[in-house]
C-alpha cells in the first residue's frame, strides 16, 4: 500500500516473482480499484513466465470503468498452500479495498503490510505529508503497516543517488514510526551501484514501447 504512483505495482510484481524464485507457490491479487491504466495485467506474461498466478478483475485495462475485484480474491484467506501478494490501489481510496478482508487477515495474523514510499512524488516529498497519507491509508485499510519499502524513483531518470536519497528518507520515517525499512526496490541495472544490502531488484516490464 502507499501513495498512488509510488511504484506499488512494480514492487508487488517483482516481490511475487522473488518469492516464487525461492520455490514458494505465489499468487498476486490485483486489488487496485482506483487506476484505469498501468495495472498488474500488463505484466501477465512476466508473471506466468515466473510461475506466479495472477488474480485480477476481468475488467482491468478494458473499457469497463468499475472498481471491481476478481471473485477468486477470497482464496487469499482460505488457500493456506500459497503466498498471497496483494497489490492495493493508491491512497486511502485504494486501501478501502482491504476493508472486505481485514478481519480475516488480522485474525490469522500472518501478514506483512508494506508501506511503499517514493519521496520523489510531489505529495510525499516531506515527512509530514508522507505520514499524513500513511495515517489515512491505515485507517481506511484498518490494518497497520509492518514495514517500509524504499521505492524512490524518477522513472527513466532514476539513478543510484535517487535510490540512496530514498533510503535516507525512509530511514528518517523509520525513526519516527519505529517501522523497519524492509528493502529498497531498485531497478535491476542500478542495484549494485547503490551499494545497499537489502535490495529487491526490479526487472523492467515493458508496458509500452513509445517512451
Amino acid at each position: 500500500m502507499g501513495h498512488y504512483g509510488s511504484g506499488k505495482t512494480f514492487t508487488a510484481v517483482n516481490y511475487a516473482t522473488y518469492l516464487s524464485a525461492q520455490g514458494k507457490k505465489v499468487s498476486i491479487y490485483d486489488m487496485d480499484i482506483v487506476n484505469p491504466y498501468f495495472r498488474t495485467v500488463d505484466a501477465e506474461k512476466f508473471l506466468s513466465d515466473n510461475g506466479v498466478e495472477l488474480v485480477v478483475s476481468p475488467y482491468a485495462e478494458t473499457n469497463v470503468d468499475i472498481p471491481a475485484m476478481n471473485a477468486k480474491s477470497y482464496r487469499m484467506i482460505h488457500d493456506k498452500t500459497r503466498y498471497a501478494v496483494l497489490d492495493i490501489g493508491g491512497d486511502e481510496r485504494g486501501a478501502l479495498a482491504l476493508g472486505r478482508f481485514y478481519e480475516e487477515i488480522l485474525k490469522e495474523n500472518d501478514y506483512n503490510a508494506f508501506w511503499v514510499v517514493n519521496p520523489y512524488r510531489i505529495e510525499t516529498r516531506n515527512f509530514k505529508d508522507a505520514l499524513a497519507i500513511k495515517d489515512e491509508i491505515e485507517s481506511a485499510a484498518r490494518i497497520k503497516f509492518t514495514g517500509i519499502v524504499n521505492c524512490a524513483n524518477l522513472g527513466e531518470e532514476t539513478t543510484a543517488d535517487t535510490v540512496l536519497y530514498g533510503k535516507k528518507f525512509c530511514d528518517g520515517l523509520s525513526e519516527i514510526t519505529g517501522l523497519p525499512v524492509v528493502f529498497s526496490a531498485v531497478r535491476q541495472d542500478l542495484a549494485d551501484k547503490t551499494g545497499l544490502k537489502d535490495v529487491l531488484p526490479i526487472r523492467p516490464i515493458k508496458y509500452v514501447n513509445w517512451i
Binding site: N118, I122, L154, G155, E157
Partner: peptide, 12 residues
C-alpha cells in the same frame, strides 16, 4: 530535495 519530481500528467 532534487528539482524534479515524478508525476502523472493529470497531476502535473
Amino acid at each position: 530535495m532534487s528539482e524534479k519530481v515524478l508525476m502523472k500528467g493529470n497531476e502535473a
